[in-house]
Design a protein around this nucleic acid. Sequence first.
RNA 1: GGUGAGAUAGUCAAGUGGCCAACGACGGCAGACUGUAAAUCUGCUCCCUAUGGGUUCAGAGGUUCGACUCCUCUUCUCACCA
Length: 410
Amino acid sequence: MRTEVIKDKIKMIQEALREIRRGTAEIIDEARIEKLLKAYIEKGETFTVKAGFDPTAPDLHLGHTVLLHKLATFQKYGANVQFIIGDFTAQIGDPTGKSETRKKLLPEAIVKNAESYKEQVFKILDPEKTTVLFNADWINPLGAAGMLELTTTHNVARMLERDDFEKRYKNGTSISISEFIYPLLQGYDSVHLKSDIELGGTDQKFNLLMGRHLQRAYEIGKEQAVLMMPILEGLDGIQKMSKSLNNYIGVADAPNDMFGKVLSISDDLMWRYYELLSALSLDEIEVLKFGVADGTQHPKKVKEALAIEITARFHGEEAAQSAKAEFDKVHAKNQLPSDIAEFELEGPIWIAKALQDCKIAPSTSQARRDLKQGAVKIDQKKVTDEQLQLEAGEYILQVGKRKFARAKVK
RNA sequence: GGUGAGAUAGUCAAGUGGCCAACGACGGCAGACUGUAAAUCUGCUCCCUAUGGGUUCAGAGGUUCGACUCCUCUUCUCACCA
């Protein structure tokens, strides 16, 4: 009997470790993580996992949520998450990946951004097991003396080892002294909070390790394990997801857009998204993969399930289902979408001009090309006459598969 | 501070007096095939009711019948020297 229970627990620990490892780029001190999991599963002892967020980016996209999902996984296995809003450090600006010194943020902007963070993260994290903290709360009291003490733990040569700094130094790009302070402060957060584990992106490695070193320097009796998540690829599957590349799925995207965007990714990329963004377990995903491989599952269905899961997470199950219904209506049954932007135009109006005015063609030149290529439809019927004039009446204009407009010609 | 090289469309990158709205690649858009997938094939990719007109090749001047191409100045980038 006893041995059964012990075997079960060992299995649980292995299972937990597998989920923790899922999708990670690198783990430092995995043994420590295993120990923490063991203590939780055997004795119910909880531990802390820290992750810091710069309150500079109010537009969150799915790339940012990869880390949140990993935190949620930890919460399943006994972690209390220390969710840190870097309100103090934001005044400096994280040097990571930046080719130049960053501008300072206004305090009001920081507060506003932090609020929008909170709104979004609890769609993924368990609020019961999450503590939101502002690092100005313990860094401000540090004072000049404390700050000075912090700087004695490292020297300039060591700082310059860091990639970004080294490059910038070589290139003669300016490095502000305050930027040296940034990693120290982030590391100090770990000292203050006595974190057991810290999560971050791969680009954060230097900063994350700083937490380990400082915990040793300050002799708090533990050194945090570090777990790094990879950068999520964007819709194209090649470049990283980012707003400027316009290959992102924003957490604030409308349900229909979100659903459509997920469905437009390639089948290969779908598995990547499953790995990093789905709440399904590894075993469940394996089943899907086998299903697709032996033909019992259609890849589109599997992708749909993912699209629904993701859409539901941010907009609720109902909105996700109606997004799917809407999608089927437009694309499978070739019907019109239910929401079409409306424009009032003065008639009679030249078709190319009408397309431009309805914002579904950027210029009349482009509109003419679209016409010539058979991409334009009026009331679902293809139109190729470049000279067509629209008389008074109501028309549904369409360019390609996705751009619709309702034109009311007076 | 000195010398040299460079700045061309969303990005990379040809073009060194007219054949240039400017080769090509990537990206993007559209069409075919599909599952709004991938792959593939095709067309398009500055603006303008157009077999034509207008504005473009860092900026400002100049030479010339004619300039992305030559000259002058300015701004910025890179390399070498100090």
